[in-house]
Design a protein around this nucleic acid. Sequence first.
DNA 1: GTCTATAAGATGATAGAC
DNA 2: GTCTATCATCTTATAGAC
Lengths: 255, 255
Amino acid sequence: MLNSGVKDSPQSELLAEEFGLAISLDEGKLGVKSGDTAPKRLRRSKAEQRAESLEQILDAAEYLFSKNGFYGVTLRDVALRVGIHTTLLHYYFDDKHHLFEAVFKRRAGVTCDRRMAALEQYEKEAGDHPTVEGALHAFLDPDFDLYIEGGEPWVNYAAFCARVSHSHEGAAMMAANFDPVVLKLIGILKRALPDYSDEDIFWGYHFITGALMNTLARTGRIDRLSGGICRSDDFPAVRERIAKFMAAGFLALKG
Amino acid sequence: MLNSGVKDSPQSELLAEEFGLAISLDEGKLGVKSGDTAPKRLRRSKAEQRAESLEQILDAAEYLFSKNGFYGVTLRDVALRVGIHTTLLHYYFDDKHHLFEAVFKRRAGVTCDRRMAALEQYEKEAGDHPTVEGALHAFLDPDFDLYIEGGEPWVNYAAFCARVSHSHEGAAMMAANFDPVVLKLIGILKRALPDYSDEDIFWGYHFITGALMNTLARTGRIDRLSGGICRSDDFPAVRERIAKFMAAGFLALKG
DNA sequence: GTCTATAAGATGATAGAC
DNA sequence: GTCTATCATCTTATAGAC
């Protein structure tokens, strides 16, 4: 396994767990039973080691890209943070673009699946009369829960996505991965607002995603502006307000 | 004066006008009467020439920074676009950071002054009973008008600001320049919503600015998502909806 | 898998000629 | 004011040793 940034870090073995989350993309893919009969897993399989190294690199890249964007991070920065040599990054990810894409894709599936599942469940529950606020809760809350409960890696990923969303390189990546969920939401909104034009509904979504991305970016602006009354990383506070706020906005568009 | 990107461009003399806007920061500062009696201004003063060169550089930098951010643009990119050598950029702006800051500051004052004036006028008109929607119109509309009527340079500046707003380098720049106007808006909102907590009001503003920045960024995402029904650069469509939408959101927070 | 060595090119910046 | 020449440094990427 790789060094963990700080040289000779004694607890480097723990990092993967510390940063781990119950939901993991790679779980199961490796085909390795973690329980087995081994005594406290003294030895790891090659596949496990590789997966762990990949995770550490992706964590570092995710953190740095979320702060400075694609061009603001060098492979040297990433390697230094992990405590390895840049050549190893090429070994694992070929080039910088692939690394960037890997960071995006690692968690994209998880958040999409959760939101899609929540939307589908809401559709069933609501039957013929979905509400805007109900749909928005189904769309937004699973994500907020992920960021609130998932710890630092997920919060970094959120900021990473916020950055990507305002960049041109990332627009295609966003579309390819998130469009199905968003269109699912749009579909429910249309049924909740049958007399609305598509234009009104899409602009409403545009406002929501703007507010959401501004939250995920955690720039610290609202902290200073409010003199500490609000904190950029107070996701629960936003979760509590955003669906109700935006639902009312929708209803007012034709009012 | 400088070359205008394309070598031997015959109409390079016209560029400054083409990109010019009625509102200009430098107007008046130069102490040069443009009308005078000169026959179609065959000769320019040194100061005028210098100002024009600066404008051309700033236009190019503004465009590029708005697309790729601070780290995604090299001085060579800027120089190439203007048709000059990088050393000249150092001559005018010292270093890259100063150039970036100059791009930001060139138009920051204009938009702030306009919005502040509109907010103050609204305060007078509304007297003791300001409304949320009224305050938001005063805050947002002058800016939208600027972007709609100001042409490409102002639209690029808008995208530039959107990018800055999600970056850490830019957070301080944003605060130093825009906080007074924003706090003015917050003050009016407080009077419009006397029973609201500061927290609710600041989070509401947070949502608004997110939606606004997402608009200014013009990433093209809403275009593809909506299959062409909405266009990223359709500022009038947003102007028409955003104040009403967000005002309703505010009113719903305590409802 | 991890490292050393190395290359080719880009980048921000300076000194000085014209 | 504008350009040439030059610099040290950084950046991505490859080949090959261990």
